[in-house]
Simulated scan of single mutants.
Amino acid sequence: MKLNTIMPKKLQPYFKRELNEYDQQFKAGNLQGAWHHLERAHIIGQAYPWHHSYVHWKMLLFGVHIKSAKEILGQIPRLLVGGVKSFVGKIPVGNTGGANVPPLKPMKIEGDLKAIFKRAGIHPNTEFHE
């Protein structure tokens, strides 16, 4: 069993960039664009407990902002369990993290995100386990 604790330094700038893009889009009122960047941050950070949980926290706050009971109720268990699954290395690779997708469903990773993982020396389909 692989225990993940800290996001590799080479991956951190990409995670931060997605969160910064989220903030900018959210402040500009582009909620769809903001959510897209939260999903991307989730994919990048889902293997690392703190980062994974932080994105679910942001998704919960987003759900509160848009007054979506589905998103709020969907994020609570993800927030409570997601970090633990990351810690023990059992994540659904590529899952975007929102309440609109099953929490344990692996998903295809977009090409540009695959390239980010490759540049960081991480191969999510082989290093992370569903």
Rank of each mutant, 00 (worst) to 15 (best):
M1D: 10
M1T: 10
K2M: 04
K2T: 07
K2V: 10
L3D: 01
L3P: 01
N4I: 07
N4C: 07
T5V: 01
T5Y: 14
M7S: 01
M7A: 02
K9L: 09
K10L: 04
L11A: 01
L11K: 06
Q12H: 12
Y14W: 13
Y14M: 10
F15E: 01
K16N: 12
K16H: 05
R17Q: 06
R17D: 13
L19Y: 07
L19R: 12
L19Q: 03
N20G: 15
E21S: 14
Y22K: 15
D23V: 14
Q24H: 07
Q24F: 11
Q24K: 15
K27V: 03
K27G: 01
L31I: 05
L31E: 07
L31R: 00
L38C: 08
L38G: 02
L38S: 06
E39K: 14
E39W: 04
E39T: 11
R40K: 09
A41N: 00
A41M: 08
H42N: 11
I43Q: 11
G45F: 00
A47R: 13
A47M: 09
A47Y: 13
Y48K: 14
P49F: 10
P49M: 06
W50I: 11
H51R: 14
H51N: 15
H51P: 03
H51F: 09
H52A: 11
H52C: 12
Y54G: 00
Y54S: 08
V55I: 10
V55S: 05
H56R: 05
W57E: 04
K58D: 10
L61M: 09
F62T: 02
G63K: 02
G63N: 10
K67Y: 01
K67C: 03
S68L: 04
S68Q: 02
A69E: 05
I72H: 12
L73F: 07
L73M: 08
G74P: 03
G74S: 04
G74A: 09
I76L: 15
I76W: 04
P77R: 02
P77T: 13
P77I: 10
R78T: 04
L79C: 13
L80A: 12
L80P: 01
V81K: 06
K85F: 15
S86H: 12
F87N: 01
F87L: 13
V88M: 08
V88I: 15
V88S: 06
G89V: 01
P92W: 07
V93C: 03
N95T: 01
N95Q: 02
T96D: 04
T96W: 00
G97W: 01
G97K: 00
A99S: 14
N100R: 05
P102I: 02
P103S: 06
K105Y: 00
P106H: 07
M107W: 02
M107N: 00
I109S: 13
E110N: 08
E110A: 11
E110V: 02
G111F: 09
D112Y: 13
K114L: 15
I116L: 10
F117G: 06
R119I: 10
I122Q: 05
N125G: 03
N125F: 08
N125Y: 14
N125L: 05
T126M: 12
T126C: 13
E127T: 11
F128V: 06
F128W: 15
E130W: 06
E130S: 04
